[in-house]
Write a protein that binds this DNA or RNA. Structure first.
Lengths: 187, 187
DNA sequence: TTCATTTTTTAACATTTGTAAAATGTTGCG
DNA sequence: CGCAACATTTTACAAATGTTAAAAAATGAA
């Protein structure tokens, strides 16, 4: 079982001992397509790793719903504001396919952070990787047009293009669905 | 001297011992207005805390320069990609006023992360706070128009409005300077 | 398959924002 | 002061994107 965990990239840096400590706090869960596992108005008590499936994070606006993240196998999945500030987050997270996840209760994880130096640094690196990815998207928004962002997205996430509704991809790219259609039409 | 550090919010959570360990790696530096302390094409070996002054982070595009962060007293200041991946970053950081900074060499800091549980968790929280702030900006970009972002900016950073050139604020808000002028004209 | 539902595309038009250039305002230095 | 350099606003026009509505295509359930 520890061996199974090790093949998941996010756990690969941990020693046998730390991985064992962490695995004591893990549960394996499965949910069907369409399940909303994290809700924006609640404090989410778990941290998830997606073993298989697809997820999207979105926020509800007045008359639109904006997707700002997609997750695939191996991605970590958590409500930033629950995890960091113990407050309701900004995001809903919905599964776009039947999915298998590992979950860790935040209260357990936070205890480990105070006890285990390796796990504390593991948690630091997770936040750092999310930070780099989020900064990257902010910069891309500033420097690239919607058409280029669409090309990048198709190149980097070819599976998502096949499986995710274009309306979600449009809002992820920061344009309306009509504009995305026009971009696609201009092949 | 340790007491002086404690009044800086980012250090306030550390114990006497950890703060002492950290302070052994600190240097105090001062630079005049206009100094570029971090360059996008270099690996930046220091982590900074701004004691006084103003800073902005920007990236160079083909024909424009886009500001995506402003720093004030108490803010931490580092090249995300140098700090996280030991690679040249995306950002230049320039001082917009004469500034006093504390700097910590990354190699020293990383050693502390591997030795001191409290400092490792301190580093985790820094990354988490930057992450929350960056996510907040990405979501704001999606849900708020430029006029509302400008109002928010003036409300939250009244000192910056006074001291920073509007062209920098325009690119920070994600619009051209002409559009920002139009927003301002519509009082 | 067929029908109903949902998604995607297309079209016409409105609005916003961008671009370029000129006009005006501001700052600091000799 | 008076000039030079730079910042900001304004104008006119162009380009991109949004809005609304309808048509076409795809999907899923009976």
């Amino acid at each position: 079982m520890i061996e199974q965990l090790r093949i998941i990239a996010v756990f690969s840096s941990l020693s046998e001992e730390s991985l064992h400590e962490l695995s004591n706090c893990m549960e394996y869960v499965q949910y069907p397509k369409g399940t909303t596992i994290i809700r924006a108005d609640k404090v989410e008590p778990y941290f998830y790793v997606l073993q298989s499936g697809i997820a999207r994070a979105y926020s509800d606006g007045e008359n639109q719903q904006i997707t700002f993240w997609f997750g695939q196998s191996g991605d970590v999945l958590f409500s930033f504001n629950s995890y960091i500030n113990n407050r309701p987050g900004y995001e809903n997270i919905e599964l776009l396919a039947n999915s298998a996840l590992i979950r860790i209760k935040l209260t357990d994880l936070f205890l480990l952070y105070q006890q285990n130096l390796e796990i504390a640094n593991w948690g630091r690196k997770i936040a750092e990787q999310e930070l780099i990815a989020t900064e990257r998207r902010l910069i891309d928004r500033a420097f690239k047009g919607a058409a280029e962002r669409y090309r990048d997205f198709t190149a980097q996430s070819p599976e998502l293009i096949k499986k995710v509704a274009l309306k979600h991809i449009a809002s992820y790219l920061g344009v309306t669905q009509v504009t995305l259609s026009r971009i696609r039409a201009a092949h």
